[in-house]
Design a binder for these strands. Sequence first.
DNA 1: CATGATACATACATCAATGTATGTATGTTT
DNA 2: AAACATACATACATTGATGTATGTATCATG
Lengths: 203, 203
Amino acid sequence: MSNVASLTVNEQRSLATRKLLVDAALDCLVDVGFSRTTGVEICRRAGVTRGALNHHYADLAELFVDALRSAYDMLLSPAPSGDMPHNCEGYLRLGYARVTQPEFKAIVELWLASRNDAEIGSQLAHAIADGSALFDPVRIVGQPEGDVEPEVAAACRTIQEALIGLGLGRAVSGAGEMAHERAVFGVLLELARGIDSRQRNDC
Amino acid sequence: MSNVASLTVNEQRSLATRKLLVDAALDCLVDVGFSRTTGVEICRRAGVTRGALNHHYADLAELFVDALRSAYDMLLSPAPSGDMPHNCEGYLRLGYARVTQPEFKAIVELWLASRNDAEIGSQLAHAIADGSALFDPVRIVGQPEGDVEPEVAAACRTIQEALIGLGLGRAVSGAGEMAHERAVFGVLLELARGIDSRQRNDC
DNA sequence: CATGATACATACATCAATGTATGTATGTTT
DNA sequence: AAACATACATACATTGATGTATGTATCATG
């Protein structure tokens, strides 16, 4: 049922078109921001007509739900795999790899749009909540059944906020690494390693 | 010349109207974001007609320059006065007081708009650069003639990015303090005090 | 005080985005 | 294969924002 081969031709075409629209929407958000991410512009970039957009999504808010989930998925590609340690340093490196991707700007744009537009806000609420879980320290640092120490959680949240700051800086500057980005990463790394070593000694 | 009394009636009226427009623009950015911050909406909130807007500003980008500078000024109201120590802890407390003000959202909106719209970007470049100086660790921590240690600068930049993250979180959530905001502040405070105490021992 | 400049308001034309209705080709089912 | 559904494209009407032109009252100045 969920196999590609088991999909009808119509279902495959639908999925392909929706992917075109979702990718175009993200492209648009990254390129020109939310205010210029209009239905016509998305369709132009997707190479489809507005009829297709209207057929698959009642309004842009619906499309943005798919787009946000897709963006979160893209940021997940550097996943917490086996080679990434389940500690604060791993949390830092993983988060850094995420916020420095261009899709992060699309996410920020949708965060703000969600706050600025009530309709978008209500429709995106679930996707945003699900996405926030990706940053949850417990997911990254915590052991499968164990909880994380409050000190570790606080450090991870601090790392998270600093990474969001760096990501926003990149999104705004447009260029790559900011001047003090390395220095900030160094401080965060020191903070993470300090917590991690203290945790090991606790056992 | 710069005295209020020395201003002509016309000049006073111009200043008052421009202030109405600037305040309305900031209100609008905070309330409904950049995409809905349109000329008509600004004038509606300011209680003037579009003729007034057009008379004082050739386009919205020009108004946004004044608005951004005004927003930065508002964030400056908790200024680095005598009671705020010139160290990392002072930098943290000062920055926190700034990013938690509602005007910070308007600044973020304009940062992104500046990146998304070439015209706005070129016109806001100077104001953004001037505003970034407000976050410059040297301005807050550094002594008048002395430079700041690289370690102090790195810590301040880290604090800055984390504060921006917290500020963005507030801007997006709309509500006040986020759940982990206190915990993050605590970690940052510990970081700042660690650096400050080490600095004192260096002398 | 008369003339010009300033600070707006009003009005209209334009344009881009949207909502919606309908057309059509392809796929699906019985 | 006939009837129906799906996946789009096309077309039109509407709406909101903008550019711009002009009107008008107040102010400034020789």
